[in-house]
Design a binder for these strands. Structure first.
Lengths: 152, 152
DNA sequence: ATTAAATAGTACTAATCTAGTACTATTATA
DNA sequence: TATAATAGTACTAGATTAGTACTATTTAAT
């Protein structure tokens, strides 16, 4: 169904939580799990990944926790997804050209590349802040910059 | 990784095969498996679904097979995906509003709805024919209709 | 120093989903 | 009547996902 995994789903919820507070503020795994109604071990696991991938800064020890590495406006949904699930690649040929057994006969590689790029572009234009402060109906993702974009 | 399932992947390959031949032409499961290098039982399974979902017409009996219900220009990638995997819904709240345990606290529902709509729009604009006759670089999906579209 | 509260790293398990197969029934052609 | 095809359904093995558990390390407070 092209469904987000729980890990990514929770990860986005967690980052949105950070984004709604002062940028430098630290949040512990326990606090985040509690306030968002998520299972603590999962929250722990996800925060570790997000820190390793450079979206969060970790602060060890008592009174420790995690804080956002960058502001919400500067973190895209695409980045979050790829931090938690690896690069967005709807088919094998997009991720690892040449490895799919079907490449010799399949004629869809170019098309998949384009579909993938379009989806990726969409998700790259959306930032964490867009998620929690949804722009008014008529304004496209990408915040204040109201340009028309060409789909391709 | 937001990867297509094999079933969908193969399904699109199969439909593209149909689309590259005369519209009314029948193809049997065996022929399709052979020519596209796909496992026969999978091809059988997929064709049944596509027929049930109204994308293919089945012709039973000897010399039977399947043919396209509509021309390739009139079948979108979104339709194919939803025939094989059910409705495109990146999160639970998009597919079944009210059923996710997290809805009371989660503030991302609107955002997911918008992301989902955007992706869906993209996939809806792409037709089977676009897949096999990739439009030149500068022309967006949607075939000859070269309009700009607003992302939202 | 010691304790407590936090993250880091890793390994594990159960349940679910996916890919692929098998089999029987039905239909249509020759 | 034999053969070649789809329809329907059930099954299986393997991979993935969701969630847990445990040990080590780090830091703050007392």
């Amino acid at each position: 169904m092209i469904r987000m995994s729980k890990e990514t789903d929770y990860g986005i919820i967690l980052l949105a939580h950070f984004s709604q507070h002062r940028k430098g503020r630290k949040h512990s795994a326990r606090e985040l799990a509690l306030e968002n109604g998520l299972p603590l071990p999962m929250v722990r696991k996800i925060l570790k990944v997000l820190a390793r991938e450079g979206l969060l800064v970790s602060h060890r020890g008592a009174k420790g926790g995690y804080s956002l590495m960058r502001r919400g406006q500067r973190i895209s949904v695409a980045e979050i997804i790829s931090a938690l699930e690896g690069p967005l690649a709807m088919t094998e040929c997009v991720e690892a050209p040449g490895e799919c057994r079907l490449e010799p006969t399949c004629q869809l590689k170019t098309a998949w590349q384009r579909i993938n790029d379009t989806v990726l572009q969409t998700l790259s234009r959306m930032t964490l802040s867009d998620l929690t402060d949804p722009p008014p109906e008529s304004v496209p993702f990408g915040g204040s910059d109201n340009r028309l974009v060409r789909i391709q």
